[in-house]
Write a protein that binds this DNA or RNA. Structure first.
Length: 264
DNA sequence: ATACCGACCTGTCAGC
DNA sequence: TGCTGACAGGTCGGTA
């Protein structure tokens, strides 16, 4: 992908997935070389020709000339696939970028919760990377917040990249109930949670993610972390530690699973 | 400022 | 065999 050039862009008629105007997305992408593809939280970031990597804490860098960036958020059901042109165009395909190599980059998203946008300056998703954050900084992020700890874990402005499955799994491994107020957690609780989040994410990444119904990675491969879920999707099943039935409650409109005995 | 809730969409599956 | 309702990897904006 890196090094390839976007020759032309086709954008579907649905506006829902577009965070920037279609014409702006097309004009920003067309003719640009993809310098680098990386991830920031839940966003896929394409650095386009002329882009200067963001540096930490350098406000004056804002005056540096910068290339554009193409930002893709997959939402719930979004996929970015690389296809050969003869490949059938899947239903719910919202964007096709024709590359100089002859391949096509396609964005497919049935539910249209995914988002496409372009930025002319350095894109900042906010929050810190959960796999990079130090223990002390992690503790400071959550200390004193009145919100339920699970809401805080899902807040992308604090920690970026943790979603519903991994929030539940992390809280189980840290023996903390989803509804516990962040402010009520001790320093030791938060240290355990820090370790749990990192452990869950590392394990999940190693297994290629969680394929619940239709998730596959960029190569179309399913993940296997769902086989290691200890509470997510296991309502009524015995806790793997104590045998108590796993509970499911709705918190901020999201399914939340926990063991009522192991998690306090 | 903070925190819930519905809205945004389509697809699938269980239950009747 | 349908139909209906609940639910799904996420985020936003309105309202209290």
């Amino acid at each position: 992908m890196s090094g390839d050039t976007i020759d032309s862009v086709w954008i579907g008629s649905r506006k829902q997935p577009l965070k920037s105007p279609a014409a702006e997305i097309a004009s920003t992408l067309e003719g640009k070389r993809i310098v680098r593809v990386h991830r920031a939280g839940k966003h896929i970031v394409f650095d386009l020709e002329g882009a200067v990597p963001r540096r930490k804490e350098t406000r004056q860098a804002a005056s540096l000339p910068r290339g554009a960036q193409w930002i893709v958020h997959l939402g719930m059901t979004g996929r970015m696939v690389v296809s050969e042109p003869p490949a059938e165009i899947a239903k719910h395909t919202h964007l096709i970028a024709k590359l100089a190599s002859g391949r096509e980059l396609r964005f497919i998203d049935p539910r249209m919760f995914g988002k496409l946008s372009v930025h002319s300056a350095g894109f900042d998703p906010g929050g810190v990377e959960p796999l990079e954050v130090e223990e002390e900084q992690f503790v400071a992020l959550f200390r004193g917040r009145k919100t339920p700890i699970k809401s805080a874990l899902l807040n992308q402005k604090l920690l970026r990249g943790v979603g519903n499955i991994y929030a539940d799994e992390s809280l189980f491994r840290a023996s903390i109930r989803p509804r516990r107020r962040a402010a009520s957690l001790t320093r030791e609780d938060l240290r355990r949670l820090h370790r749990a989040v990192q452990e869950v994410l590392r394990d999940a990444i190693a297994l290629g993610g969680s394929s619940i119904s239709d998730y596959v990675d960029a190569d179309g491969e399913e993940g296997f972390f769902q086989l290691q879920h200890r509470v997510y999707g296991r309502e009524g099943d015995p806790c793997l530690i104590c045998g108590t039935a796993v509970k499911r409650v709705v918190l901020i409109g999201r399914s939340s699973h926990y063991c009522p005995k192991c998690q306090k």
